[in-house]
């Protein structure tokens, strides 16, 4: 066995044990969600119970408005993703391509807001929402998330790579700056938009702190908050709780597996911003 093979085998060994550590908790979650309650407490743990109890999944909605949580999360996430794609691409285009005074100052100021911890703006935002009677509505989750400095930055970086000749050609053909944005830049930036889209989807779908602060009633809760409240009340009914967990993760895993390359590009891009 030569040195190269030995190195690769070592690498596989490390990576595989790591991968098992990553996947095992998920497998166990699925297996627990299909067990009978009494089988959960058997020690040593078994992978499968005597019979596969699919009805745990049906029992979730007996106790909790799970479909409501799901639809709430879906609604908020879709609105936020679409809104951020529009607002971030518009602002990204302006900062990448339009010339006006104070552009760099304004962009610098906007970038600096990425540094501000959410906890600093959280309290005044709560007061604003309360003054406008938006507490316990989905508006309190949607409104602050309509624009994003990170999204603007990400799309600006992409727009900078689009050759100026395309822009000039469109202008000669009589395009307004908006025409250049809408007919040249937006169609060319589908991969970058998809990257931002999956990122925003993940962040919004998984957000816990904002729903925790703003939402009180069951009927308006998002999936993570609903799941957390469910855990608070039924912390002993593990199979049902695990079934809820599985359902809450599935959309993200599906999107991740479908759009894996975009996710990876997004992480890489967000990593590059520091360099």
């Amino acid at each position: 066995m030569n040195k190269q093979t030995a190195l690769k085998l070592t690498a596989h060994f490390i990576l595989l044990s790591g991968a098992i550590t990553m996947i095992l908790p998920f497998l166990w979650t699925v297996s627990t969600s299909l067990k009978q309650l009494s089988e959960v407490f058997i020690f040593p743990p078994t992978l499968f119970g005597e019979e596969i109890r699919w009805d745990n999944y049906l029992r979730i909605s007996d106790r909790f408005p799970f479909e409501t949580y799901f639809l709430n999360s879906l609604k908020i996430t879709v609105v936020v993703v679409i809104a951020q794609l529009i607002t971030s691409s518009m602002a990204g285009f302006v900062f990448a391509r339009l010339r006006f005074r104070y552009r760099e100052v304004l962009f610098g100021l906007y970038l600096a807001t990425m540094m501000v911890p959410a906890q600093v703006t959280m309290i005044p935002n709560f007061i604003i929402m309360r003054n406008y009677n938006l507490i316990d509505t989905h508006w309190s989750l949607i409104l602050p998330a309509l624009v994003s400095a990170f999204g603007t930055f990400l799309l600006r970086q992409f727009f900078l790579t689009i050759p100026a000749s395309l822009e000039d050609a469109a202008k000669i053909d009589g395009c307004t700056p908006f025409g250049v944005y809408w007919r040249v830049f937006v169609p060319l930036s589908k991969p970058a938009m998809a990257t931002l889209g999956v990122f925003v989807f993940m962040g919004t779908w998984n957000d816990f702190l904002a729903p925790l602060v703003y939402i009180n009633t069951q009927a308006k809760m998002t999936l993570p908050l609903g799941l957390a409240s469910m855990q608070g009340m039924y912390s002993t009914d593990w199979p049902v709780l695990m079934a809820g967990t599985v359902i809450s993760i599935i959309p993200l895993i599906a999107i991740f597996l479908l759009a894996q390359d975009f996710f990876i590009k997004g992480v890489t891009l967000s990593g590059l911003k520091g360099e």
Binding site: T29, N206, S248, I253, F263
Partner: peptide, 11 residues
Amino acid sequence: VSSMVAVAVVW
């Protein structure tokens, strides 16, 4: 990609 809530339940 999993939510912290799900991860917390599992762990």
